[in-house]
Design a protein around this nucleic acid. Sequence first.
DNA 1: TTTAGGG
DNA 2: CCCTAAA
Length: 403
Amino acid sequence: MDQEVHFCQKFTNMNYHWVKMEGSFLPAPLNESNEVDHFLVEPKSDHELGNCLRVQDFSRDFGYEIQTNGDAEVDENSFRQNRGLQLGKPSSESKSQGSSRSDTDAFEISELSATMVMEAEFNNTPVERSLTRELFSGLRTRGGCATPFEGNICDTILDNNNIHKFNTNENYLENEKISDENVKGDIVASKLASCSRERRLRKPTRRYIEEFADSKSENNKGRRKPPTKDKYLKVTSTEESNHIRQGFLSEDEPSATECKNVYSSAKICKKYDRRKHQKMWTLTEVMRLVDGIAEYGTGRWTRIKRHLFASSPHRTPIDLRDKWRNLLKASCVNIQNSKGTECKQPHASRPLPKSLLQRVYELANIYPYPKERSPKPVREATPPMYLIESNSLSFNWGRKKYE
DNA sequence: TTTAGGG
DNA sequence: CCCTAAA
């Protein structure tokens, strides 16, 4: 029984916490393993232990599965005939494929599995035998799936960790002047475990958690077709909110690379609430919008967006149009005020420069917003006073004739 | 799919 | 900034 406890505690040290977050379980690193000790120490039966530790459970929850290809299919009997860590081919022959770090999850699952096998091998009690059986039945039954590693899983693990020297290739341990079989196992396993633990100390990042939750919910609910507006971005970053607070006063528009970063993070966070993270229009943005309208006219918001706001992924064509509507209001009010007309001053915290408003006003005359372009066909209507007065414009409005 | 209009 | 209807 002491051996069992010993094994279980060792295993526990390498395990993850499974943290429940928003209804789903996430793997979190384990510094202190006390919380799960009760699962492992002194199990009542083989079955109970198996339920706790089956490989399938890990791979299923990660969305990864563990692969053994055809010729590397593990034969339990031959496996058990090997001693200690001599689980596969010598490391010099082993080849790792696709050992990219981007597949961290799959890698660590495999790593964990291999470590489990090794641990079980060193302690030949019934409990560990059962665990080993469980593990290898899992490896066999779930073949044909995709981890980035092919071939003997243990070889892969060892090779990828650059710890292939641990292969008990008796040479290594003989050089180490260690003969006792159990001590060998403990040393190797503890080295493996420490290697494993190094990478598990990091907490899962927030993005990882969000992605995990998101993908899980998508798997459960099925993929919902995003609304059209999602084609244009939903942004999220702290820089973003700083930018919001700075408003007009800072003209530091996000650079192209920043926009790319924002865009990539925005693609990840699909349910971003723009209302909660509204981005103020900067003066340069407004000027760009005015330029775009001067060039393309109103009602061609998509074109303006494409040509002038290509580097501002957070501005949709609808945003441009809405901003223009607001600009129209602002310019109208200001001009009326400048004429002494009694008009309500907008409580804008950052008033636009008069020159800009003047330009908006002129453009509004050239390209009247559709609403202002007589909703009903009023043929006999006289043009508004402000149009008559703006003689600087060469715009031919309606029925004006050259005489 | 884009635009207009209202909320 | 969002939603919906219409083009």
